[in-house]
């Protein structure tokens, strides 16, 4: 079960209210159909989903709206998941990192490096590393674009050298709001685990 709000063609946003008169979503369940091959009289790329509002009272008697001067589709964001990964073998404490957006084409994900090499792959403050043996943070010294098509992420040399062979570290970025503020729009990243050789 989820809570949802809807925007109508007058731009009003419909939901309900809680006991403190906060505006909240209505309880609903959604079901998404998978895509089939279209018939001869159909266009491709049309999907379907069903929504059932679970509380008729909430939906009718307790329906409330707020006015809005913006369009959901224009103003709000739907993020893409980006799987971070090591694009090439690390050289000592320098990890070769990029990110992939999955696609339906087999073994052909979209690499985000080119679109973000001047932001995400140039700003060390957007990255973090955690030692999975101790959960201690390992400082990121820097990240810089590499002409080979990935970012050179440099971990603190002393901390990396202190790791034993086989030790694992988790590499991740800051959360989407901080990425957005730094000009990295529309993505949320998923960390990867690096094992020290």
């Amino acid at each position: 079960m989820l809570t949802v709000i809807v925007q109508d063609s007058k731009k009003n946003i419909w939901g309900t209210q809680d006991a403190d008169k906060n505006f909240i979503g209505r309880k609903a369940i959604l079901f998404f159909d998978g895509l089939d091959h279209p018939g001869d009289d159909q266009a491709a790329g049309v999907g379907y989903f069903d929504i059932i509002f679970l509380d008729a009272i909430e939906n009718y008697d307790d329906a409330f709206f707020i006015t809005a001067d913006f369009n959901f589709q224009t103003a709000l964001s739907a993020l893409l998941d980006v799987q971070l990964f090591e694009k090439a073998v690390a050289i000592a404490n320098v990890l070769k990192v990029s990110g992939l957006v999955d696609t339906a084409q087999i073994n052909a994900p979209f690499d985000i490096y080119e679109d973000n090499k001047l932001t995400l792959f140039s700003t060390g403050a957007l990255w973090a590393i955690k030692d999975l043996q101790t959960n201690a943070a390992i400082a990121v010294t820097s990240i810089a674009p590499n002409a080979a098509g990935y970012g050179d992420l440099t971990a603190n040399a002393v901390a990396y050298a202190a790791l034993s062979s086989g030790d694992k570290i988790e590499v991740y970025t800051v959360l989407p709001p901080a990425l957005d503020a730094a000009g990295v729009k529309g993505i949320e990243t998923i960390s990867f685990i690096h094992t020290k050789p």
Binding site: T3, D8, S9, G25
Partner: peptide, 27 residues
């Protein structure tokens, strides 16, 4: 009255009375 439904958003958040009091704060 509710008009034709255009877009649905799954949302677990809340807008407090002070937030929905102005268009800018709600947005």
């Amino acid at each position: 009255s509710p008009d034709k439904l255009q877009t649905i958003a799954i949302w677990g958040g809340t807008l407090t009375p002070s937030e929905y009091a102005t268009l800018t704060a709600a947005k």
